[in-house]
């Protein structure tokens, strides 16, 4: 900008040749832009001649568009709160959620269970001891310190004994993942798990180690309807969204899988993802005959 202003002032004073100036301007489009901006300022100042003797005008009323937009965005992103249900347990009880549904329930022993999308659990409370089975999907468990009996969580061949604290359990296609967010738990073999630990069970195999920070964040965030990513491919992002969707999103163009996304998506509403993908990458989405949403490069 300083350089362009220098050229304009020099041209104005006649201290440079037009040829030298043309050469400078043609060298880079940024020179031409800066010069146009300075020339605009040069012209604009002249308009103040008219202001000198003009009577005062009422101030233009500015509409606060920014505020309006923000309000609209907030209203669009409101999340659906899960219903809290108190359930009386006698023999073996069941609870399940449909695709896209979330709900929470409190067992008679005070344990709070939140069910994520497409989840089914069953439980039995017998003489103070509780057993919970995760049949499919994902749950968050909050075990009160006042729990007197023993609490066991089972999924396939995996079995954990839970102390007071909060935990996350998820059935993956290939494994069962158990996370300790707070408190303590024991695996069936007697390995102790403390806060921040994760156990991955594949068949008879149990691998215990510290959990990824993003895995912990993810386990805490789905309860608020938020999805967390840390640079995963669009494939992975779409798969996570698809857990909440019926019909699902299909990536038709393999080249799109190279796109990597990070951050927090504050809704599981696919329309928000689709409009964002369109606006930011030009990706088009189409509904096919079977209802699936197909993504193609724009």
């Amino acid at each position: 900008m300083e350089e362009a202003a220098g050229w304009l002032a020099a041209l104005d004073a006649g201290s440079v040749t037009p040829q030298a100036f043309e050469q400078w301007r043609a060298a880079d489009p940024r020179h031409a832009i800066a010069f146009a901006q300075v020339a605009h300022a040069f012209e604009q100042v002249e308009r103040l001649r008219a202001v000198e003797d003009r009577p005062a005008e009422p101030a233009p009323t500015a509409i606060n568009r920014r505020g309006m937009l923000r309000a609209g965005v907030l209203a669009g992103g409101a999340s659906v709160a899960g219903a809290l249900l108190a359930v009386r347990a006698t023999a073996r009880e069941h609870a399940e959620t449909a695709i896209g549904e979330r709900r929470a329930l409190v067992l008679d022993d005070g344990t709070r269970i939140e069910l994520n999308t497409g989840t089914r659990i069953s439980w039995r409370i017998d003489k103070g001891d509780s057993r919970i089975w995760l049949e499919r999907g994902e749950i968050g468990l909050t075990v009160p310190a006042s729990l007197r009996g023993k609490l066991t969580l089972e999924a396939g061949s995996a079995r954990f004994t839970l102390g007071a604290g909060s935990f996350n359990a998820r059935q993956q296609p290939e494994s069962f993942d158990f996370l300790v967010l707070n408190g303590m738990a024991d695996s069936v073999r007697g390995d102790g798990l403390t806060a921040g630990a994760m156990a991955r069970v594949i068949g008879q195999n149990v691998a215990i180690g510290p959990a990824d920070p993003v895995a912990l964040d993810r386990a805490r965030s789905w309860k608020d309807g938020q999805l967390v990513f840390e640079g995963e491919s669009l494939d992975f992002v779409v798969a996570e969204f698809n857990r909440y969707l019926d019909p699902r999103i299909v990536i038709a163009d393999p080249a799109l899988s190279r796109i990597r996304l990070g951050g927090r998506f504050t809704t599981t509403n696919p329309n928000d993802l689709l409009t964002a993908l369109h606006a930011s990458f030009g990706i088009r989405s189409q509904r096919s005959e079977n209802g699936a949403i197909t993504l193609t490069a724009g």
């Binding site: 990513f229 640079g231 796109i259 990597r260 996304l261 990070g262 951050g263 927090r264 998506f265 964002a276 993908l277 606006a279 930011s280």
Partner: peptide
């Protein structure tokens, strides 16, 4: 990596 926060 594109952050969701910057998606349009």
């Amino acid at each position: 990596i594109v952050r969701f926060e910057h998606l349009a």
